[in-house]
């Protein structure tokens, strides 16, 4: 029996996602967001986290899901990454869910699009499936993509 793992869960376009609790620094309500003109579309803007300027990534945009309607609230999940803290913008926050490693399954071949790369797998838990987000890739591809532009 594998060790149980805890996931911080959140909702995005009706799907349940999870980020490993240890990767999450904090969760913030809607913050005033400063858009960055000319930036890649997946970058929603900049927020002020107690004096630290943090880049916010729109996960809907990143997963190629339909855009959030104007006025819909969003939640910032601040994750620790190699690039420092980065905020991931989601629809709403769930709770912390303890899962059993045995329930894990890789995404089937039929998953296509951006989700294929960014979803590390699913947990077959009670209720809706828990999509495990690969935070490294969500950030990493943006960094490498922008690095090319920077060269």
């Amino acid at each position: 029996m594998a060790e149980p793992t805890s996931y911080c869960t959140f909702w995005l376009d009706g799907q349940r996602f999870g980020i490993e609790v240890l990767e999450v620094q904090e969760v913030l309500r809607t913050q005033s967001m400063t858009p960055v003109p000319l930036a890649p579309t997946a970058i929603n803007g900049l927020i002020n986290l107690r004096g630290q300027i943090i880049t916010a990534i729109d996960l809907r945009e990143r997963l190629e899901l339909p855009s959030r309607e104007d006025g819909d609230a969003s939640v910032n999940i601040v994750v620790r990454t190699d690039e420092g803290p980065v905020s991931i913008l989601v629809d709403s926050i769930g709770g912390v869910l303890e899962v059993d490693r045995a329930d894990f399954e890789l995404p089937p071949e039929t998953v296509y699009g951006a989700g294929r790369d960014l979803i590390a797998g699913v947990y077959k838990v009670d209720g809706p499936l828990l999509h495990v987000l690969d935070v490294g890739r969500v950030i990493g591809e943006l960094v490498t993509a922008t690095r090319k532009g920077d060269a």
Binding site: S32, T34, V36, P37, L38, A39, P40, I43, G45, L46, I47, N48, G51, I53, I54, T55, I57, E83, G84, V86, I139, L142, V143, A145, T146, R147, K148, G149, D150
Partner: peptide, 22 residues
């Protein structure tokens, strides 16, 4: 600015204003 924004060379950085916004 974060490296995530290094593709946009238009900005020299960011700052936080009196009202807390960036």
């Amino acid at each position: 600015l974060s490296r995530l924004l290094s593709s946009v060379s238009m900005y020299a950085g960011a700052t936080i204003m009196g009202d807390g916004r960036v």
